[in-house]
Design a protein around this nucleic acid. Structure first.
Lengths: 267, 267
DNA sequence: CATGGTCGTTCGGTATAGTCGAACGAGATC
DNA sequence: GATCTCGTTCGACTATACCGAACGACCATG
């Protein structure tokens, strides 16, 4: 937030700060924004009218709210991503057969972003659309780190200075992480039981044929589910089918589309 | 787009234009943006670095893409909306029982925005998350207009100068619109058969207890579905349950929260 | 009915900062 | 190794974003 490099265009930065403030506060008035962000009322008013004119903010009854334009722009990004295109069908059938909640994560850098969700039951641990969590948290991350390590062929923990190394920076947890990764490798997926509820979550990594980890697929079933065991096996089937569809997508789109490298974010 | 009023902060407007250009083009380089938007390269570079620093754009391999931050901000907006909170559970069960695709629309002004989707089958008419369509198109709109007219008690077509009046501005289609609305009133929901495929879509309006139309619920089933008749009845059940949950939400949150008026947009 | 308070909005002066063109360096292509 | 293209940096100019003050509306309160 505080300027790390000498970029430019502080005006845009200010507008986006106001936008995110409206997001956090679920709407606000002019003076409310001005006092909170320590700006003059007239400046805030200018920025808000600009955001309204551009369609990012609505202005009803002296209250400014963020509009659905952000959802529209973000939704188009998701709908166009090959990962979502490849996973849509399997997410639906996986959720239907396991009667659980299926979530699709996109790996970007050292974080995992939840970009799609299928199915719902009350009491499930909340996870918001677009929520970004570090790879070291919440099974979807570790399963990708483990898969990333396996694709390199060597040991992950004390191997190359990788993303995975950050997950095992403290030596005393080396064995623990190593064991966890070994278990993931053996089964092909990871399991986690919720600490608050009795829900079980199964997670599998989605890799391209060249080994690049693109994301992860997750299915959460309630503790009193009919057959919690088969959920893991069913997840593996879904993962394989998604990967198959994913590689076929890349094969068909590999012909001259340098623009659609679709951010592998490998380093 | 072209300045309708003398607002302010043209810089922000320029940044957002660049952002939307990246959205449309699925990523681009500096000069590509500069030539397309008729700006100097240095200016574009400044704006892009700012957007990157704020997290709205990623910068990999000399290509700038919009990031998932838009999805995150838009997703939080959706997840916090009472309409989505009230409809989540019913959307899931409705999709499971009809084996179709359930969509939730939010009424904002004279448009309907698709904010949630549950279920999927290949070949379904595409509709993107956050997509905004006029109320006169695509059943979700008309069903809201019809419900809006009913809540006013009078005839919609030549009644008060309302939102609905715009749907019937041309006199020769008055009867057609009136008949359609009457049919919707009689059954409680609207039906539409896809012109391209044989899919059938059932739509019902979601109103608050005071009569304000908040949105619409939609279920699309393939033409060769098992029991297409029951989908409409099942939809009605879902609509009633969502409305029940919605009014209870407003009752519990009515106690001093002027900020969460949640844009009824009735104007 | 009057009045003090709050809020949103408008207006013009001033100095900040966003814009532009030119120049530099890296990378690819032939 | 030469030439083109692209991304990035730098400095000067001036457009323009910022601010404070003032105005009008709207609610409470006396």
């Amino acid at each position: 937030m505080t300027e790390p490099s000498r970029n430019r265009v502080g005006t845009t930065e200010k507008s986006l700060t106001i936008l995110e403030f409206l997001q956090r506060e679920d709407g606000a008035g002019v003076t409310e924004v001005a006092t909170a962000l320590e700006m003059s009322k007239s400046t805030v008013h200018s920025h808000l009218t600009t955001l309204v004119d551009c369609g990012y903010v609505t202005h009803h009854d002296k209250q400014y709210h963020v509009s659905t334009k952000l959802l529209r722009l973000g939704g188009r990004l998701r709908d166009q991503s090959p990962l979502y295109q490849a996973a849509r069908i399997e997410m639906k059938s996986l959720a239907a057969e396991t009667d659980g909640v299926v979530r699709l994560y996109l790996k970007e850098g050292d974080d995992a972003t939840m970009i799609a969700q299928e199915g719902y039951y009350p009491g499930i641990p909340e996870r918001h659309l677009g929520e970004r969590t570090p790879l070291t948290e919440s099974i979807a991350g570790p399963v990708m780190l483990a898969e990333h390590g396996r694709s390199d062929g060597g040991d992950v923990v004390d191997g190359a200075p990788d993303d995975a190394a950050e997950a095992a920076d403290s030596p005393q947890v080396d064995d623990e992480v190593r064991d966890r990764f070994a278990r993931i490798h053996r089964r092909g997926y990871a399991v986690e039981t919720s600490s608050t509820s009795s829900d079980r979550t199964f997670a599998g990594a989605l890799s391209r044929r060249d080994g690049a980890v693109m994301g992860a697929l997750t299915v959460t079933v309630p503790g009193d589910a009919a057959s919690p065991l088969s959920a893991g096996d069913r997840l593996l089937e879904a993962v394989e089918r998604v990967e198959l569809s994913l590689t076929s997508w890349y094969d068909s789109h590999a012909t001259f589309s340098p623009k659609h490298s679709w951010h592998v974010h490998s380093h």
